[in-house]
Structures are given as C-alpha cells and as structure tokens.
C-alpha cells in the first residue's frame, strides 16, 4: 500500500511539474526583435511626428523600437549606426541627414545584414538602401510655384529660404518651385539664403533680408519650420499682411495659420503615411520578403485657404 501511495504521489508530482513547465516558459516570452528608427533631427516637430509614428507602428507590429536622433550631424548619425549594428537590430527606418554623407552608413548596415528603409529623404545611391520612400518634393513645389504665381502675380520681388544645402530635398523643392516661377520674367528673386530648415535661423535670415530688400512681395520657404520663422520675423516687422509666406511640409502650426489667412500655402507631405509604410516594409522584410522597389514616391498635396479644412494632423482628415 505504502509503495502504491509513493508511486501515486510521484506520478502526481511529475504530472504537475509537466503542466507547470510550459506555463513557466510562457511567463518568460522570447525577447522581441528590435527595429531602429534613425531621424535626422528631433529639433523639428515634423521629424518628431515621422519618428514617433514609425516607432509606434513598429511596436504595433510586435517589435521593440528605439528612436535615434542624428541632430543633423553625419558624425552622430554614423555613431548611431555603429550602436545599432552592435545592438542586434533587425531593421533600420532611416531619415538621412545628408544625401551623400549618409550613404556610407547605409552601406555599413547593409554589410552587417541589416536592411535600411529610407523615409522622406533620399540618399544618392540605388544599391545601398532596401527601399526609399520619398516625398515627391519636386512635384509638390511645382504645384506651390503655380499657386505662388496665381497669388503673388506675375511681377514683383521675392525671396527664397533654402534648407540644408547637402540635402537633395532642398534642391528638389527649389528646382520644382523655380521650374514654374522662372518662366515669369517679371518675378525677380532678390535674395536666396539657407536657413538650414531651422525656425530660429529662418527668423534671423528673414530679418536681414527684410532690411536689405524691404519691397519683397513674398517669401518661399523650403520647409514649414522656416515658414514659421519667416512669418515671425514679418509679424515683428509689421509686414505680415504685405508679404506672403509659402512653406512646405504640412506642419500643424502652418496649416492652422493657413486657415487664419496668415500663411498663403504649404505642400502637405504625409509623414505618418511614409513612416507607417516603412515600418510595414521592414516587418515584411524580416518575415522573408526581400523584393522591394528601390524608390516609392509619395505625392505632395497643395494646401491653401480654399482646401485647408480637409487637412490636419500631418495628413488628410
């Protein structure tokens, strides 16, 4: 009897242990795979939205996601990539700092077997990144240029604030705008200066342009942060009603000012669409799909007072 009871207790204990083992295993799930989100700068709300949306979508898809800020510095970007490669990340969602300077970083990640999905900004290589999801800045600024001529007229002086000179977007935007405006010889660009996509710099640059060229009728800014800085300078100088400001990005504060009639227009890029899609592409890559188009253009839409009610929250309502 005693032997029988001992055997019964042993069987019960063994059975309980077998039941508990899988429970113990499920209590400690395998660590999540990691996706890195590298953003050119977090000193601009538009890029914060881009980075945060990419991170949020990666988390939704079941990954651990971390944002790295390159602070518009290719050296910092390179250090971020070193850390990411050493850190065992499975994919990089990448908003480059410099079209040429960022190529080496992407190639390093590629050599380490980590796919890189560029968002918004282009790198000057078609065999480094797995895919580049690019805002069609040129075409967006063609539309802005057409609206500029319609609003400002075919004659008058204007100024242009450029972004970072090493960034392809700076020139795609400027060239798109000029492909239209330069067809009207009566429109004279009297100043063209870089404010590096930065609101504070734009404020300073606009103040000096106003002193040198008080008769300008409009200013075209390569992004909305610069449009906000330019508007601030104009408001301080009491010229906000006389000089029209055109931006590019579709930032919420500029969309709001378009609604109030204070800024003339912007080009709505779709940072959330691009960020989500790139996270989804990374997920597909990790799950085995390796065939992606090198470039996926994302059209830009013109936002003016007439259609501003359709836009907000960095996209279409």
């Amino acid at each position: 009897m005693k032997t029988y009871l001992t055997k019964l207790v042993f069987i019960l204990l063994a059975g309980t242990a077998m039941l508990l083992l899988p429970l113990h295993a499920s209590a400690q799930p395998a660590p999540k795979q990691k996706i890195a989100v590298v953003v050119s700068t977090l000193n601009n709300p538009w890029f914060v939205v881009l980075g945060e949306t990419a991170k949020a979508r990666a988390i939704e898809l079941g990954y651990e996601a971390t944002i790295f800020d390159s602070q518009n510095d290719t050296a910092k970007e390179a250090a971020n990539f070193e850390n990411i490669i050493a850190g065992g990340y499975k994919a990089i969602l990448f908003n480059p700092t410099d079209a040429n300077g960022s190529v080496a970083n992407v190639l390093k990640a590629k050599a380490a077997g980590i796919p890189v999905f560029c968002i918004d900004r282009e790198i000057n290589s078609t065999n480094a990144a797995t895919c580049q999801m690019l805002s069609d800045s040129y075409s967006g600024c063609v539309k802005l240029g057409q609206f500029f001529v319609k609003t400002v007229g075919r004659e008058g002086e204007y100024a242009e604030l450029l972004g970072i000179v090493g960034d392809n977007n700076t020139w795609n935007r400027s060239k798109g705008f000029h492909s239209v405006v330069d067809r009207y010889p009566g429109l004279k660009m009297v100043a063209q200066q870089s404010a590096e996509f930065d609101r504070a710099k734009s404020l300073e640059v606009m103040e000096s342009i106003l002193q040198a060229h008080p008769n300008i009728k409009a200013v075209f800014c390569g992004n909305d942060a610069m449009a906000m800085g330019a508007y601030q300078a104009l408001a301080t100088a009491g010229k906000a009603d006389q000089i029209k400001v055109f931006g590019f990005d579709g930032a919420d504060d500029v969309v709001k000012l378009i609604g109030e009639g204070k800024i003339a227009a912007t080009g709505m890029q779709f940072p959330k669409t691009m960020a989500r899609q790139s996270a989804e592409f990374a997920d597909e890559y990790i799950k085995g799909k390796h065939d992606f188009p090198q470039k996926v253009p994302v059209p830009v839409e013109l936002v003016t007072k007439d259609n501003v009610s359709k836009y907000g929250d960095y996209g279409k309502k």
Binding site: Y138, S139, K143, N168, G176, P293, K295, P297
Partner: peptide, 25 residues
C-alpha cells in the same frame, strides 16, 4: 505646361529606372 501628367500618365516610365530622382523630374 507644368506637372507630371505626361511623364506619369501613360505608365510608360518607371521611377526606379532613374537612380537620380532629379533626372526623373
């Protein structure tokens, strides 16, 4: 004439055939 109607309208041209997007523009 401005815009991309002719470039994109027929489906004959593919952006991925042009490494530099400025060429495509």
């Amino acid at each position: 004439i401005f815009g991309n109607a002719l470039r994109d309208g027929t489906g004959l041209l593919n952006v991925n055939d042009y490494p530099d997007s400025q060429d495509f523009n």
